[in-house]
Write a protein that binds this DNA or RNA. Structure first.
Lengths: 122, 122
DNA sequence: ACAAAATGCAACTTTTTAGTTGCATTTATC
DNA sequence: GATAAATGCAACTAAAAAGTTGCATTTTGT
């Protein structure tokens, strides 16, 4: 049986959507508090809002808002356990972002190489 | 003679600074227009503001603001050539961001492995 | 010298984001 | 069943960001 299609860009609208999705991931990581939350969660634990709040200087409701931003970017997921809501990392989008930065670096390197060859040509 | 010290975190204030610097880089990439500018610039060219504006839907002044955001994050650099201002990619901060995402992914993988071992223990 | 091109600079509006406070709701515990 | 813990929800303020318009400045080319 065929596996469900992966979210790969096929036409221009998909590319646009991919670009927006990526920008959303970067924007989610583009805040010191959220970056810290991700750093804590990448240790593998599933932590409650109260636990995550303990590491910050802002209110619990403020942390909730940051977690929502991360969730809308697909960086974290929540699981309800009794009266608490546990948050854990979802590394797929982070991996996609990492690959993007990888490609940018590689393209830059290739461009530099071509410039060098051009400069050396007689 | 010793080379100048690399910007490596040594104490808590350095770590905080590093975190803010990183968040600034992610935030700079966290916008579709800026992400597109970076994608164009990573081809190696040094492009003017007018050239970069041609790829967007916003005004030249708007593009200038986006370039300033990228520049303050250290993602791009400008070189003045006559009456125009050419922009080019500076891949160092992007590489730092990539490494961060790499570490997050690795830590997550290690955590998963430990969880698996724990589940298999008798 | 003059006209066009490329950009800089500043004021302004609109929208989004960050963070708070106050109170309601759900769930575990004694 | 009363209470404490963990969270949800909504309204609100303040600050930052995105984008525009208008005009000044610098540089090139004829």
């Amino acid at each position: 049986m065929p596996a469900p299609s992966p979210p790969v860009a096929h036409d221009r609208s998909d590319v646009i959507h991919a670009s927006d999705t990526l920008a959303r991931v970067f924007a989610a990581l583009g805040d010191p508090i959220r970056l810290k939350l991700v750093a804590v969660l990448c240790a593998g634990g599933a932590l409650s809002i109260a636990q995550l709040t303990a590491n910050t200087d802002i209110s619990r409701q403020g942390v909730t808002k940051h977690l929502q931003v991360l969730a809308e970017a697909g960086v974290v997921r929540d699981v309800k356990m009794g009266r608490e809501r546990l948050w854990q990392l979802d590394p797929a989008q982070i991996e996609a972002a990492r690959q993007t930065l990888d490609v940018i670096g590689h393209e830059w390197g290739i461009a530099l190489q071509k410039l060098k060859l051009f400069a050396e040509s007689p």
